[in-house]
């Protein structure tokens, strides 16, 4: 077994472990740290699969920018020990059963597909140059759409997150009156 393969399986195991930890944590900050670990592991996998550019993006944008957003939000919500207690109450064992069955069936389906398929050969490096050439060639329209999506997300986030002003409070009062 070559070094790359060992690295691949190790990183896979790390990613799986980190992900499982992410969804089971009670404390949001801990979960976030595990998620970042998982993302980094996936970045390693990208690199091993011959996609160094994607690996870079994963680290910079996902593990960097997006996760920082999460950190900010968690800090703003200021969820302390009491939140953890509530999480503990919410996360009873029984609640896992139904969703787990759904996920297991889905997993089984994809595994069936993969097993039945003919063996697929390994990967080769796809350089950033190829990506760039394609991105600004045939996919130009998709890039434009993505930029518009980001703009919409920006405006939407700004609108939603702005502080409640007088009119909003007033609205709430009216609602209370109606009730």
């Amino acid at each position: 077994m070559s070094f790359e393969l060992i690295l691949f399986y190790t990183a896979s195991a790390a990613a799986l472990f980190a992900t499982v930890m992410t969804i089971t944590r009670l404390n949001a900050a801990h979960a976030l740290l595990y998620l970042i670990a998982s993302l980094l592991a996936v970045a390693v996998l990208f690199y091993l699969m011959g996609a160094p550019f994607a690996a870079g993006l994963e680290v910079i944008i996902y593990a960097g920018a997006i996760m920082v957003l999460f950190v900010f939000v968690i800090m703003m919500l200021n969820m302390g020990q009491q939140t953890v207690e509530q999480e503990r109450q919410w996360l009873s064992l029984g609640i896992w059963i139904g969703p787990s069955i759904i996920c297991l069936i889905l997993l089984a389906e994809v595994v069936t597909l993969l097993v039945n398929d003919e063996r697929i050969a390994g990967a080769r490096i796809v350089s950033p140059k190829m990506v760039g050439a394609l991105l600004y060639g045939p996919y130009l329209l998709a890039v434009e759409l993505a930029s518009m999506l980001l703009l919409a997300g920006l405006v939407g986030a700004y609108h939603l997150a702005r502080p409640l002003n007088e009119s909003h409070l007033h609205e709430n009062d009216e609602k209370a009156d109606e009730e």
């Binding site: 139904g98 969703p99 759904i102 996920c103 069936i105 889905l106 389906e109 994809v110 069936t112 597909l113």
Partner: peptide, 17 residues
């Protein structure tokens, strides 16, 4: 979301089996 997931499971299941 569970409904959507079940639908996906059903549709993929149809394809697979």
């Amino acid at each position: 979301a569970a409904g959507i997931a079940l639908g996906v499971v059903a549709i993929v299941g149809l394809g697979v089996w």
